[in-house]
């Protein structure tokens, strides 16, 4: 398969008043052409920073201290700002979390949608606006011709997110990064936006990185899932791998805290106890250890490497080490394993 994007050993630090925050501590992943990769994890785990590093849209106190971001094999971190501008909004575009504040309140939406076209293509204002109108229709804004001259505050939250999506796709990007595009919306609108993204993916064939902290959303859209914790990935694999054959205790916790329709035997939602570690002074070993009921001594001393579970499924937990004791995951996870076997997998 064609890797259009590959991130290698990414480290991002923030210079803050209290010291250096090591927000991203060695992230590796890749994105295949045409697929959707979901990144999940608790708030503050570093999902946004990871993807923003791809476009180098970081706060001024951030430094990418190490790593490579390979786009078709080219390291984006070596590119000048000018070269990056050519990619942003053109080859790689981004949808932000909060539709209420993402649009310029003093510019008509027609102009805002047309802007990427005007920046990246040699196109007349008139043609750009015409294209913008088409795209607005495509994302489901009713009567777009009449609404091109309206301002953001004249649209509902769901409509504004559609407009933000229109901006992101207007120039047919190869990669679309959606950073929690539905978090701020209510459930029915969420579903509509997800459907829209899927539909658009088929129409324009882009690859999507989809960020969320809601595992429920993932099943509907992703091909592969990466689970993130405290600035690192802890497990990644196909949707089925992560949902039905999870290996990392943190993934267990996430799944356990997710409401599902088919696991009503244990309706109680379990949230993971404790809080994420302070990234000013990241732990030496597995960052999840303090909250992990299955922690071992080694977890405190050494970061676990990724262990291969199946062809595309990896998890960074010492529990997968051959010398580790066999532990019994929570009941809900065992249920998932059963389902995995029914799917024809080979749960551990």
């Amino acid at each position: 398969m064609d890797k259009i994007l590959e991130v290698k050993d990414l480290h991002v630090d923030f210079d803050t008043y209290n010291g250096t925050v090591h927000a991203i501590r060695g992230v590796n992943f890749h994105l295949n052409a045409g697929e959707t990769l979901a990144i999940v994890g608790e708030s503050g785990s570093g999902k946004s920073i990871t993807v923003r590093s791809v476009l180098q849209l970081l706060a001024s106190n951030a430094t990418i201290s190490k790593g490579e971001v390979l786009y078709h094999g080219d390291d984006l971190l070596q590119k000048s700002d000018k070269e990056m501008d050519k990619l942003r909004g053109n080859k790689i575009s981004m949808i932000f979390q909060d539709p209420m504040t993402s649009l310029d309140p003093t510019m008509t939406i027609g102009k805002q949608v047309a802007e990427p076209l005007l920046i990246h293509n040699n196109i007349s204002q008139k043609d750009a606006l015409k294209r913008a109108e088409e795209v607005l229709r495509l994302v489901g804004i009713p009567n777009p011709a009449a609404r091109m001259k309206d301002y953001p505050h004249q649209f509902s939250g769901g409509q504004r997110q559609r407009i933000v999506i229109a901006i992101a796709i207007v120039d047919y990007p190869e990669i679309l990064i959606a950073d929690e595009p539905t978090t701020a919306l209510d459930v029915t609108v969420q579903a509509q936006i997800i459907d829209l993204l899927k539909e658009l993916q088929q129409k324009i064939g882009t690859s999507i990185i989809f960020i969320t902290h809601d595992l429920g959303v993932v099943a509907g859209i992703a091909d592969r899932v990466a689970v993130m914790y405290a600035g690192r990935f802890v497990e990644y694999g196909s949707v089925d791998d992560i949902f039905y054959n999870p290996q990392h205790p943190y993934t267990w916790g996430l799944l356990d805290s997710m409401p599902t329709l088919d696991t009503n035997e244990d309706a109680r939602l379990n949230s993971i106890p404790g809080t994420p570690p302070n990234l000013l002074d990241p732990p030496k070993g597995d960052a999840f250890a303090p909250r992990n009921a299955y922690a071992m001594q080694i977890d405190e001393e050494q970061q676990p490497p990724f262990f291969k579970v199946s062809k595309n499924h990896f998890a960074a937990t010492w529990l997968l080490h051959p010398d580790a004791p066999k532990v019994t995951p929570p009941a809900a996870i065992l249920n998932r394993y059963k389902k995995f076997e029914k799917l024809g997998g080979n749960a551990k």
């Binding site: 106890p273 404790g274 250890a289 303090p290 992990n292 009921a293 299955y294 922690a295 071992m296 001594q297 080694i298 405190e300 001393e301 050494q302 490497p305 990724f306 262990f307 291969k308 990896f314 010492w318 080490h321 051959p322 010398d323 580790a324 004791p325 532990v327």
Partner: peptide, 22 residues
Amino acid sequence: MDQIPQIPKEKFKLVHDENNKE
């Protein structure tokens, strides 16, 4: 990732309770 690191066996003891205090 492919070669499995050699770790002394006793390091694989579960230590849940202590940690929560930590």
